[in-house]
């Protein structure tokens, strides 16, 4: 068996099923967008942002989980050229790795049907999620700092952002409740790109809300269409990473930890809110580990969606 010098080849664990056809149809050269310890984002020739994630992260749209614990030892810089093929993604600089795609498990974003659920079921689940979020959520994004902490730490910028998020979320929910498409679009735009992080909190909130709206049988389909149009039109209002994430949420695709929570939320047969809360604690905790406040912000959006579903179903 040959063991002659071989380039640094990294097999993949799993990848988003939509990637394979996209890469097959659009081979060519792209470039490194951004490098983190556990994720390298690369811009594919088709213009799509693709994430090469460390294996311990969860599956997600446009993501390949490679057999690495972290990327910090690889010599990859933002802007480096990257060759894309159906079999592999190769960083075109000396000593840089090639990520092999063959053999990886394909990941599909699962959906949950909301068709036959009654208002009370949404209400109960909303109640449980609200409780867990209040207890476990990371404050500083959509969840506001508690009163005493605010006075101690917040500065003018943070206060403004917090106020913007609070008002924006309330206005968006009110607009959906009132079924005013123009308002929905306007208020969604107010949230788009609002917040300091790489995926601004406003976007995360929209992601959570639209992810629910994109599930079959949701009563929020109308709102989703309006938000989808706005997001499509204003791709320059937020970071590419955040925009990509949001656009996928609008299609019902999100990180596996969030989808798993969504699935547990509705598939879990729970006798009582307390029992459901007990079941959900672990998946909620996992989803909350996304980013700094991102997980919390996504779940806040999801919660707003649950409450809206409750109201919309109750009135029918």
């Amino acid at each position: 068996m040959k063991t002659s010098a071989r380039p640094n080849r990294i097999p993949s664990v799993s990848l988003d099923s939509v990637l394979l056809p996209a890469l097959r149809e659009n081979p060519g050269t792209g470039k490194v967008h951004s490098v983190f310890d556990r994720v390298i984002n690369v811009l594919a020739p088709c213009g799509q942002l693709v994430a090469l994630a460390a294996q311990q992260l969860d599956d997600a749209p446009w993501t390949i989980r490679a057999e690495v614990r972290d990327w910090s030892r690889e010599d990859v810089q933002a802007g480096d050229p990257v060759a894309f093929g159906a079999q592999q993604i190769r960083f075109e600089s000396p000593d840089a790795p090639t990520v092999l795609l063959s053999g990886a498990r394909e990941w599909f974003a699962k959906k949950v049907s909301l068709e036959h659920l009654a208002a009370e079921e949404f209400q109960m689940r909303g109640h449980v999620l609200a409780g867990l979020l209040d207890e476990l959520g990371i404050r500083g994004g959509i969840l506001e700092e508690s009163a005493q902490k605010e006075s101690a730490h917040a500065n003018a910028f943070e206060e403004q952002i917090a106020a913007g998020l609070r008002n924006g979320c309330e206005a968006l929910v009110a607009a959906i409740r009132a079924n005013q498409p123009d308002h929905i679009g306007e208020t969604a735009l107010q949230l788009l790109g609002l917040g300091p992080g790489l995926t601004p909190a406003g976007d995360d909130f929209l992601s959570g809300l639209t992810l629910l709206a994109a599930q079959p049988g949701s009563r929020l389909g109308g709102a989703r269409e309006v938000i989808s149009a706005v997001v499509g039109q204003y791709s320059d209002r937020t970071t590419l990473l955040s925009w990509t994430t949001l656009r996928e949420s609008l299609d019902g695709r999100a990180r596996e930890s969030v989808l798993e929570l969504l699935s547990q939320l509705f598939r879990q047969r729970a006798e009582s809110p307390a029992e459901l809360a007990r079941h959900l604690r672990a998946p909620v905790n996992r989803a909350l580990r996304i980013g700094h406040t991102s997980g919390t912000d996504i779940l806040s959006g999801l919660l707003a969606g649950l409450r809206l579903e409750t109201e919309l179903r109750g009135s029918m």
Partner: peptide, 16 residues
């Protein structure tokens, strides 16, 4: 006195 670190999105610039 105060420092803010944020991505330069339209909304964040609006806040500034």
């Amino acid at each position: 006195e105060q420092a803010f670190v944020a991505m330069a999105t339209e909304m964040n610039k609006g806040v500034l």
